[in-house]
Amino acid sequence: MGIDIRLPLGILFLLLGSILVVYGAASNPSLYGQSLGINVNLYWGVVLLAFGALMYALSRRGARAETRAENIPQSPRSSGH
């Protein structure tokens, strides 16, 4: 029942990451005096983007696996390597 939380999680972090990256790249460097001269928006935005992409990819993979399982319910389990 319910939802695969990795999908909304992925989308939320992709959006948050994009906002921070764009804002970090466009903002005045003098803004970052308080964060020790590090453009935290840009760098942390990239990390959030990567996390969002990973969660999104995992949710897509999960959805594909589920569809496969539904389509061929009788097939024997793959032996794997």
Partner: peptide, 11 residues
């Protein structure tokens, strides 16, 4: 408030 500029502060 000490370390975060706008953007990160919101987060």
């Amino acid at each position: 408030l000490h370390y975060f500029p706008p953007g990160m502060l919101g987060l």
